[in-house]
Simulated assay, not measured.
Amino acid sequence: MLNFRIDEDRCIQCGECAADCPAMCISLDNGLPEIHEKRCIRCQHCLAVCPTAALSILDKDPDDSRPLHKDSLPAPEKMETLLMGRRSVRRYKPDPVPKETIRHLLQITGHAPTGMNVRQTLYTVVDDPEVMNEVRAATLRRVKEVIEDPGLPKGLEIVGKYVAAGDKMGVDIFYRGAPHLLIVSSPHNGPSPDADCLIALSQFELLAATMGLGTVWDGLAKWAIARIAPDLRERLGIPEDHTIGYAMAFGYPAVTYYRTTQHDAPAINVVGS
């Protein structure tokens, strides 16, 4: 049930909820909104766009939502600095991130958009450094076993070189010593499983940076878990019918970056006059 309700004392009959509904399932009856439940995708656009907080859906109280106005959003210059200054961190302190902080990060990241608002994204997180050490050891052991027999999958032969280099230098090549790991997955049959996962991790990364945390997009971990030794995904509880979008190691950084980098201008294809 959608539990779509209108506070008639607050409703000014502006029609914004109907005009902005992506599923076009809201109509106006004598000026008041009505909803066609079967077409609703539960995006809550109607709740967000109502200027007087007159509309409730899914038992959500609009007064519990955070107000959106200029003062509640980051200044463009600060957002630019965050985007330009983010780094892939490969050196971490052993200190664990409080579990409450991790839960809060994931709760906010859960607002990331998904295709058709299916919201089937699964956040698999290792929040205990001791468990992370078990995952670390199991990953290295299993990948080495596969290297010996039957051999790495075609196209991933380079992983063997990374493993050898990591052994030689005493470096955790798969997780870079991070105390935590986040893997985002989504059902194969969803409208956009890969994109949904990458969008979520992008938002997690930026929010984590504002809390003083470092992150690294962990392609080696994704290869290990999704393609080289898929039994690891069972150990992590990732469903077989899920696409693993990507993995991200994170924690408190043991390195400080003092300035943004200066990349060349991107390739831009302008379509128009």
Rank of each mutant, 00 (worst) to 15 (best):
I183E: 08
N189T: 15
K93I: 01
Q262E: 13
E80Q: 06
D7Y: 02
R90F: 08
L201D: 12
I57H: 06
D127I: 01
F250T: 06
L83V: 13
T124G: 07
R10E: 09
K60P: 05
L47Q: 04
P153S: 12
L68Y: 05
C50A: 04
L55T: 14
G190D: 14
P62M: 01
H36M: 10
L201K: 12
G115A: 03
C46S: 01
T210C: 15
P239V: 13
Q13V: 05
T256H: 15
I26P: 02
Y175F: 15
M79E: 14
L207E: 07
I244F: 10
D218W: 00
H263K: 13
A48H: 10
L206H: 09
R119P: 01
G160E: 00
D61K: 00
L236M: 11
A18R: 08
K60V: 15
N133R: 01
S65D: 00
L213E: 03
I183V: 14
I147K: 07
I183P: 06
R136K: 06
G251A: 09
V118T: 09
H36C: 13
F250H: 09
V89E: 01
P150C: 04
I102L: 07
C14Q: 14
D29H: 14
D61R: 02
T260M: 12
M79C: 13
P62R: 00
K70R: 10
D218A: 05
I199Y: 03
L156K: 03
K154D: 08
C40T: 00
R235A: 10
A137D: 07
